[in-house]
Design a binder for these strands. Structure first.
Lengths: 138, 138
DNA sequence: TTTAATTTCTATTTTGAAGTGGAATTTTGT
DNA sequence: ACAAAATTCCACTTCAAAATAGAAATTAAA
């Protein structure tokens, strides 16, 4: 699979946050811990805020926190916010009309696999990213 | 999934060729039947020729034919030629080191699914794109 | 041998994602 | 009130994919 780089970044933000003890994550702290260009990360955080996935706390000692419980934020929510999920739902050959009745040449083979991918993105939550074994690296 | 647009184009070329009775496919004929910008398609055909997936026949009444038997051309071969397969093999969070011993937070959940996708691309051939039921559209 | 139908080559333009820069705004601790 | 620490906003640059342009080269039919 190929998520956009921005989606990768966004997922890494959540993955880091859920596995760190901090309560509030300043942009600076995230910059220091994730390997993402500073300005780009700041813009991305603002974007995620607008989509109500994280909440910003302004001013001194401010930062970002989850906007809702981690088990209510799915990977699809995150991908949808930063690049849109539509790309992942479309026909693999790029046809507009591809479905069971008018399938493209790959539809029958690809569709079940695509469905698994979508289920994965829709059903996996940020809570699931929590490290159980203590061997993750960032 | 999200193949690059160029990969979509390339797959559509093969999908069309395997389902059409013609022996030799001129660029013009392909332009008329596939919905791909003319110049871009021509360049792409040249590229696929260089990767030995199709063969070009120059001159009058020339065109393109499969360079080998359709069941010897996999989807992965095609994707690899036009955009490279590496993107699809990498860690979903974009880490360099992600494996069983040093997994990212998604590795255990994502890896089996990624493997299925790679198997799909590696094991599906152009011959498999041949329409059995006569209900495909291009 | 001419000519028409092709592919091939080299270069440029456009577009959108990714990345950068700097000033403005908000809030809190002192 | 002030200053520090933070987010936010607007504009710009860079890079690679996608798309376009035109001339050159090749071949076979007539």
């Amino acid at each position: 699979m190929r998520l956009s780089k921005t989606s990768e970044y966004a997922l890494r933000i959540f993955s880091f946050m859920i596995n760190d003890d901090k309560q509030v994550f300043s942009a600076k702290y995230l910059v220091n811990n994730l390997n993402i260009p500073e300005k780009y990360l700041r813009n991305l955080l603002t974007k995620l805020t607008k989509f109500n996935l994280i909440k910003s706390i302004k001013g001194r000692d401010g930062g970002f926190v989850f906007a809702k419980n981690a088990d209510k934020i799915t990977l699809a929510d995150i991908v949808d916010a930063v690049e849109g999920m539509d790309k992942y739902e479309k026909c693999i050959l790029g046809f507009d009309y591809c479905d069971e009745e008018r399938p493209c040449a790959l539809h029958h083979r690809w569709h079940p696999l695509k469905q698994q991918i979508l289920d994965f993105l829709n059903n996996t939550t940020v809570a699931d990213l929590k490290d159980k074994e203590g061997n993750l690296r960032f």
